[in-house]
């Protein structure tokens, strides 16, 4: 329905219909997709604060995004939320259940929520999701939240893409040793200890604070309860503070510049995966087969360049 030009105009006007349609086109990955993306990248770049929300499954990421979004909507802001849930390794299907935590905020002209299945992009972000961020920026959202699938310890991609990374923790999920481990704990800008309404929540909060004291630059630790809507303002203020600090120190520019590269690598991986799988020979030594394939690719590239 309509041309790419109509789509661009609709996006610029902030139409949810056009936004959903544009995301759908990129998901389907047909010829229209390349046209649309080329057109979008031809426009002047626009940025919205992009907040990555990560943490263990069940920590309350979606519920927290729900109360934070509500807080911002009440103040007249336009909020976009992109949420990822896991694809079933057995069937390839998925239950995308994050939306349920925000559903009471609809109907709402200033809130856009889209659910994504991770389709095997474990821990990382799919290129479709990352391009969606650009579409939302283009459509003029004041805040964009990117909620990752709740794996926990290895989600490092989010920090190379989002402006501010919020790690949502909840009582009883780990002691100080868990906090000491490498991974997302080192990359988060804000720690939120959610579910402070639970019994003994203070013990977990104390363990987190003890861990943070060992760091050179301890991130803010915000105790909250999404359930009781307690200290939502604390979360919003912490995000704002980190964002402003990163903007002033030039860190934000660097993150945003690297997004193109992250996307390029991510698209290459997605597009090459099928081709590479086709080349597989079951009787070869796996290492050998892989090395041979890479050698072939390098040779092709050299030949292509010399022509």
């Amino acid at each position: 329905m309509g041309t790419i030009e109509d789509l661009i105009n609709g996006l610029k006007a902030g139409s949810q219909w056009h936004l959903a349609r544009a995301i759908n086109i990129i998901e389907k990955d047909g010829p229209e997709s390349e046209l649309l993306l080329s057109r979008i990248y031809g426009e002047v770049e626009k940025f919205s604060p992009l907040i990555g929300i990560t943490g263990f499954g069940g920590a309350g990421k979606s519920s927290l995004v729900g109360v934070v979004a509500e807080y911002l909507l009440d103040r007249g802001k336009k909020v976009g939320v992109l949420a990822v849930d896991p694809t079933s390794p057995r069937s390839g299907g998925s239950i995308l259940g994050d939306r349920i935590r925000l559903q009471h905020l609809f109907p709402n002209e200033n809130l856009f929520f889209r659910s994504y299945a991770n389709k095997g992009a474990f821990g990382g972000l799919s290129p479709v999701l990352m391009e969606s961020v650009r579409l939302l920026e283009f459509a003029g959202f004041d805040y964009i939240f990117l909620e990752t699938v709740g794996i926990g310890q290895s989600e490092v991609d989010i920090s190379s893409f989002a402006d501010v990374v919020v790690l949502v923790l909840s009582p009883g999920l780990g002691d100080e040793i868990q906090f000491l481990k490498g991974g997302i704990m080192e990359l988060a800008d804000v720690f939120v200890m959610n579910k402070m309404d639970m019994p003994n929540a203070n013990i977990s909060l104390a363990a987190l604070e003890a861990y943070a004291r060992l760091l050179d630059e301890p991130p803010p630790i915000i105790p909250t309860s999404a359930l009781l809507k307690e200290n939502v303002v604390g979360v919003v203020e912490a995000i704002e503070r980190v964002y402003t600090h990163k903007a002033e120190s030039g860190v934000l520019d660097k993150v945003r510049q690297s997004r193109r590269e992250v996307l390029y690598v991510s698209w290459v991986e997605k597009m090459l995966k099928e081709v590479i799988a086709e080349q597989y020979r079951p009787d070869e030594v796996p290492y050998r087969a892989a090395a041979d394939l890479v050698k072939k690719i390098r040779r092709c590239l050299r030949e292509a360049e010399s022509h």
Partner: peptide, 28 residues
């Protein structure tokens, strides 16, 4: 549906027709 390879968004209970319509739009 999930077990047969579909991506399923469940809205939860107590939805109004307009909430469901906006969900269908946003999720394509």
């Amino acid at each position: 549906l999930k077990d047969h390879g579909y991506d399923v968004v469940y809205t939860g209970i107590r939805q109004t027709p307009s909430q469901i319509a906006q969900t269908a739009l946003q999720e394509s």
